[in-house]
Amino acid sequence: MLEGKFDEASLLKKVIDAMKDSVKLCNFNCTENGISVQAIDDSRVLLISLLIEAGSFEDYRCDRNIVLGLEMESLNKIIKNGNASDMLTLVAEDSPDALNLIFEDKRRDRIAEYSLKLMDIDQDFLKIEDMKFDAVVNMPSAEFAKICRDMKTLSESLQIIITKDSVKFNSEGDFGSGSVVIKSFTDLEKTEESVRITLEKPINLTFGAKYLNDIIKSTPLASQVTIKLCDKQPALFEYQLPSGYLRFYLAPKFED
């Protein structure tokens, strides 16, 4: 049996909101360590890897491994019915045909209970090897989101160029071009505002702006985003959860 209680529904609300536009059907794998999801978008360009460790829950138990096949849009409809500050408990039997979601407000005078039908989802499980990256950028997630949004107004592609201590986001469009350069920066009082660049080799990669604008839907989850890049290899965008992560692997574009 699975029983996982979040102190606040807001965490799962944000996670589902970040994923629902990229992937439609997901298997949620529940084990004693927590809940993990791996899902790839229909175009096979973006891979989502989610880990909500048991530590992200106030109470968590899962006696046997359970797979919950969930339709993200349906899950999102139910999740939106709960208040962000409600406690949220996920309950499923050992061989479940439904996932129960129970929202309780903190004063305990209102309990809302929903049942979501499960689906049998036949999905490839991809092996994600430990990848080597030539550049790692840690930066404020809100700043990264603004850059992705701004650059998308110009072009469907966003070029990321990293040299020494700066990252250049470059967009070349039909009616004009634009770029934003950010440099390493340490804010001792507000560490979440800092930019850290670790570089082994210079980077020049181009990504689809559409996918980046899906990834930045994770911005409410974490104040910082970590971007890991290597030439001719999928990039990794990571948002840390209180205990766990939401990761996106994005295949780059290449010149014909």
Binding site: V45, L126, K127, I128, Q233, Y249, A251, K253, F254, E255
Partner: peptide
């Protein structure tokens, strides 16, 4: 022009 790459070449199916 540029072409969107796919992930299939990078990750193997388990």
């Amino acid at each position: 022009g540029s072409t969107q790459g796919r992930l299939d070449g990078f990750f193997s199916v388990m």
